[in-house]
Simulated scan of single mutants.
Amino acid sequence: RKMQDYLAALEAQNSELILQNTSLEAQNLTLRTAQNKIIERQFELTTQNDALKRQNQALLGQLNDAKTYQSDVMTQNKELMAQHKQITSSHKELTTQNKQLRESLKLSESQILKLTKQLSEVQDQPPTPSMTQHDEQELLDLIDSKDKLIETLEQTVTKMRESLSMLNV
C-alpha cells in the first residue's frame, strides 16, 4: 500500500511537473515571440536611425551651402554699400557742379545784360564833334569787340544751359 501511495504521489508530482513544464513552454514561446518582436523593432529603429543620420548629413550639407550663400550675399552687400557710397559722393559732387554752373550762368547772363546795356548806351550817344576820325574808328573797333564778346558770352551761356540740362537729366 505504501508503494501505491508513493507511486500515486509520484504520478501526481509528475502531472504537476508536466503542467509546469507545459506552462513554462508556453511562457517560453511567448517570450521568444516577444524577443522576436523586439529584435524586429530594434532592426526597424536601426534602419530609421540610419535614415535619420543620412538626412542629418544632407541637412548639414544644405546648412553649409546656406552659410556659403549667406557669406556671398554679405560680401555682395558690402560691395553694394561701397558702390552706393561712391554714387552718393558722385551725386553730391554733381549737385555742387550743377549749382556752380547755375551761378556761373546767372553771372554770365548778368554780364551780358550789363554789356548790352553799355553797348546800347554807347550806340545811342551821338558822336562828339571833337572826335577825330581816328577816335571814331577806335570807338567802332571797341563796339565791334564788345559785340564779339557779347556773342561769345551768349554762346557760353547756351553751352552752360545745355550742360545744365544734361546734368538735370
Score class of each variant (00 low, 15 high):
Asn56Leu: 13
His84Ser: 11
Thr68Gln: 04
Leu113Ser: 09
Leu142Glu: 13
Lys85Cys: 06
Gln133Gly: 01
Val73Cys: 12
Met74Glu: 07
Leu164Glu: 03
Leu119Gly: 05
Ala66Glu: 07
Gln123Trp: 04
Arg54Tyr: 03
Leu80Pro: 03
Lys117Leu: 13
Met81Arg: 10
Ser71His: 09
Arg161Cys: 01
Ser165Tyr: 14
Met131Ser: 15
Lys92Tyr: 10
Asp50Lys: 15
Leu80Phe: 06
Thr116Glu: 04
Leu80Asp: 06
Glu136Gln: 14
Asp72Asn: 13
Leu101Tyr: 03
Ser108Phe: 02
Leu139Arg: 06
Ser120Tyr: 07
Leu140Glu: 12
Asp144Ser: 08
Val122Thr: 15
Ser89Asp: 12
Pro126Ala: 09
Leu59Trp: 06
Val157Asn: 10
Ser90Glu: 14
Asn49Asp: 07
Ser163Phe: 10
Leu115Thr: 07
Met166Leu: 11
Glu138Tyr: 01
Thr68Ile: 11
Thr158Ser: 06
Met81Leu: 13
Glu136Arg: 15
Leu140Trp: 06
Leu140Ala: 14
Gln55Pro: 05
Leu107Gly: 13
Thr158Asn: 10
Leu139Asn: 14
Ser130Gly: 01
Glu138Ala: 02
Leu101Ile: 14
Glu138Val: 05
Lys99Ser: 12
Ser110Asn: 05
Lys117Cys: 07
Glu103Gly: 04
Pro127Phe: 09
Arg54Gly: 01
Gln125Pro: 00
Gln57Gly: 11
Asp147Tyr: 01
Ile150Lys: 02
Glu103Asn: 10
Asn77Val: 10
Gln125Ile: 06
Asp147Phe: 09
Thr88Met: 05
Leu60Thr: 13
Pro129Phe: 06
Ala82Gln: 07
Leu63Lys: 14
